[in-house]
Nucleic acid binder design. Structure first.
Lengths: 209, 209, 209, 209
DNA sequence: GATGAATGAGTTTTCATTCAT
DNA sequence: TATGAATGAAAACTCATTCAT
């Protein structure tokens, strides 16, 4: 499914607003005004507000898949190195697409439409399969423990990462970093999170349980 | 701040609905109907829908504090054991108060009112201080590493835990446990999560970095 | 009709608020709070909000009558002097009971209940009869013109006077007296209005038409 | 600022109702029903009930200015004649736009929004400047006294005039003219008021104080 | 494709009044 | 007398969607 320029314009504006103020908290009128398009165009292009949300998932979910799949193609790395790269890429993606991940986090918390549920499950499944392959490699080579609960690891990974973008402002206050510049703080966070997750994965995948 | 029976009744009904359908997705009319009280009573007792949300935070935040503080009073345990108990209690609390934690997760993701932000920060600060004390004990006795980023550990803990209650249904499907009974699945989840978190904490607090 | 202390307390608070914010713009809850009494007491003492308004008219209308009647009893003054005193007293009364006259002005502008209409008419009639007597005296003695439209004179008198209390703040700005102290300005206004009205009455009652 | 047909329709209906029942006493639903338009159109066109009130002031205030300015352009009349014409025009305007002047009178009596206060002050200032010019002419030519309090004269003029339209029904009863036909009574009132005001102005502007 | 106007159902909140005690 | 609780009606406003052009 391809979106034309105008649709992308609407999608990106809607994504920003949904992330900031929630789906219900954002009116289509607001989206139209911010995107500089006519109110009726949203219905025209997407059918309804709900469908617009789904379009966001399609738009971002599509990007997600492609970008993550590239990791696996590199055959020279060890499974452990691949996990490290995966974590790096994953954290980078979440940080670069914060609004979308905020929306997804919110949607997972709510009884939403069947369609969004399906789309979220798709994204999760894709990521899971990706990791599954790497872990499977590592298990075959003996590097990783054979006693690994994959969905649990996934939940820990995405849980910690999403929580970081959700609670960024609280983290700032609790760490006493309120005076640090936004960009600097952002980098600090990204590095800490990446390092932390790598360490956690090492533990959870290791043989000595 | 104390709430009378009617207020508690409203608060608990609102909590349930806010968790299910979101704050904006729930109408006060709906709350009133489900709680079996007159619509105007909500304004009468809480002033507004926003204030009702704050009341939920006060109501649950209060309970949170008391129950967690009891852990520390036991002086016979080692810091490592205390951490284990803390994790157990924390996971139990989150599981027993799922609706509230769902609401809090959502609120953290949205630009909400100053008051709720303050109340969330309070709860987070209380938990942080609690863990800080235990870790400090462990650091003095040499059990724990002195190089510990407390807020990061907190974020990992609450992130993973909250993610579990948020993505429970997805976890079920991805693990192929759709046929398992709700209660059994709930227990399984609780145990896995607890065990997992204990292991992560052991790693993150250990000296061998 | 006599009012007890509590009723007077409510009446005076209501009068203040009705004058400030209008009858519809004032809630009974607000009156109760400001008067420091229980909300239900207003219904208890007066029956309804409408009846409370009528009570204000009875309360002030009663005062009005007594105070004005005293003017006539003095038999030593000439009709012209009496008119002057009447104007002085009238302006003083309006200035000292601004809130009530504001309410009355507003009520006259609106299709109100039969009762308030009747009460206003009563007050107007009383004043009219008072002036009528004085003018009649003056006509008999030849001082005043026999061609006098009494209600028209009345309307001019009360119109100008009421307009002054209604447009006080606008008058201040238009006269460039914004820096003058409130009390000083009040006195200035009172004197100017009195002098002005006396002059107008002299003209309207004079023989040379 | 121009209003389209629908907006004018709403404005005129609202004006009628506000004059009859007061601003607070009129519901937007009522306005919509009487104007035969959808309830939501009022918000759509004006934003809010308050803004609708302001629109009435803009709509009528605009008309006021234009119509009054034409008086001055006639250069052949003496200042005294101009004053007479001004009074005639002014009274005619008030009588032809009774609803608007009722609303304005009420608004002046209440602590209203900044915007309406500003708009009222504008209208008053415009009228004041108009009269100021004429009086200034008369003072230069020696016809009028140099000791003239302009705002006070204005207040007398508008006070008396407004009072007439406000107390029309009371005037009718007090004058014993209840059986007269509405139109006839209206004309009688207009003529009396005009004549009366001319006489008053003559006195207040004359040299012999 | 595009738009301004329009709509009906919905929202939260406020109100005057009444009730049980 | 007095009161806190309760209520139903009504208020203004917002919303997503649709329609005619």
């Amino acid at each position: 499914m391809k979106f034309n320029d105008k649709q992308v314009q609407i999608i990106e504006e809607a994504e920003k607003l949904f992330a900031q103020k929630g789906f219900k908290g954002t009116s289509v009128r607001e989206i139209a005004q911010n995107a500089g398009i006519n109110l009726a165009m949203i219905s025209y292009y997407f059918g309804s507000k709900d469908k617009l949300l789904e379009a966001i998932f399609v738009y971002r979910g599509h990007n997600t898949k492609i970008s993550l799949e590239e990791i696996l193609k590199n055959g020279k790395m060890s499974p452990a190195e691949k996990i490290d790269v995966l974590i790096e890429k994953y954290v980078q993606k979440i940080f670069s697409q914060k609004p979308f991940y905020k929306i997804m986090s919110k949607e997972m918390l709510t009884n939403n439409t069947e369609n969004t549920e399906k789309l979220i499950l798709e994204i999760k499944t894709q990521n899971l399969e990706l990791i599954a392959k790497i872990i499977s490699e590592g298990q075959k080579s003996g590097e990783f423990s054979t006693d690994v609960d994959l969905p649990l690891i996934m939940a820990t990974l995405s849980g910690a990462a999403n929580n970081f973008i959700a609670t960024q402002k609280y983290y700032r206050k609790l760490s006493g970093l309120e005076s640090m510049k936004e960009k600097e703080f952002e980098n600090l966070l990204l590095n800490k999170l990446t390092k932390n997750l790598k360490r956690i994965f090492k533990t959870l995948l290791s043989n000595d349980n």
